[in-house]
């Protein structure tokens, strides 16, 4: 995982609530190897027609939004399937943060493990942010993970919460597995006890 860099980027509004991971990455691309650029499959059926031509009006087909690194969505973003490919698609397309009032649990966890920062902000704050970035295409939003703040185009700054360890991993580009492997002696000791109790 690459270290998370501070973001000052165009933000892309996605206005559907309960946006499921089948929309973000349709199931027929689950068979593609991770070496593929999953960005080409992102929102495939919302973004492109069957023949590959662009769906006019879809947000990522409007020029300034193509450069966005921050997505702003509605509640229950990334619900449904556990497919990590949905996170890979957002990441490969260039996104580094998603801001929403709430997330599907598995999507949230998958995002943190792949360098995509999921940011929960109150629904009123997200609604205002959506209004601003929809009204002015190309409006910039800042995300500072070290300070745990989001700065909206109107200059207002909003603090968000994140688990300190997840933050540490993102900031330093560390995989959680490395840490867990360093704790293996605890797992082995537990396992011995656990297996004796359940024999």
């Amino acid at each position: 995982m690459k270290p998370f860099e501070p973001l000052d980027s165009i933000a892309v509004p996605i206005l559907q609530a309960n946006l499921d991971t089948d929309q973000i990455l349709p199931a027929r691309y689950l068979q593609k190897p991770r070496s593929d650029d999953f960005g080409q499959y992102l929102f495939r059926d919302l973004r492109l027609r069957k023949d590959g031509s662009e769906v006019p009006g879809f947000v990522l087909n409007r020029p300034p939004y193509r450069q966005g690194k921050i997505m702003v969505g509605r509640s229950n973003f990334g619900c449904g399937s556990s497919r990590e490919h949905a996170v890979w698609a957002l990441y490969d397309y260039g996104f580094r943060a998603v801001i929403a009032p709430s997330f599907g649990d598995i999507f949230f966890s998958n995002a943190l493990k792949n360098g995509l920062l999921p940011i929960v902000l109150p629904v009123e704050v997200v609604d205002k942010l959506l209004d601003q970035i929809a009204a002015e295409q190309g409006a910039q939003v800042k995300v500072d993970l070290a300070a745990q703040t989001v700065t909206a185009p109107d200059g207002t700054t909003h603090r968000f919460a994140i688990d300190p360890f997840a933050k540490h991993c993102l900031v330093n580009g560390i995989d959680e597995l490395d840490y867990t492997l360093s704790q293996m002696q605890h797992i082995v000791a537990f396992e011995r006890r656990h297996e004796a109790e359940n024999r």
Binding site: G80, S81, S82, R83, E84, H85, V87, I106, S109, N110, K113, N114, E176, L177, T180, L181, M184, I187, E191
Partner: peptide
């Protein structure tokens, strides 16, 4: 994600992503 099915037998069962699958394969935790 439909791993929740197995909770019907009184287990704590839940779905995980690919990175977590690799984490469980490596550590059983």
């Amino acid at each position: 994600s439909h791993t929740s099915t197995h909770g019907a037998l009184g287990a704590l069962a839940f779905g995980i992503g690919a990175t977590e699958v690799s984490h469980v394969l490596a550590t059983q935790a």
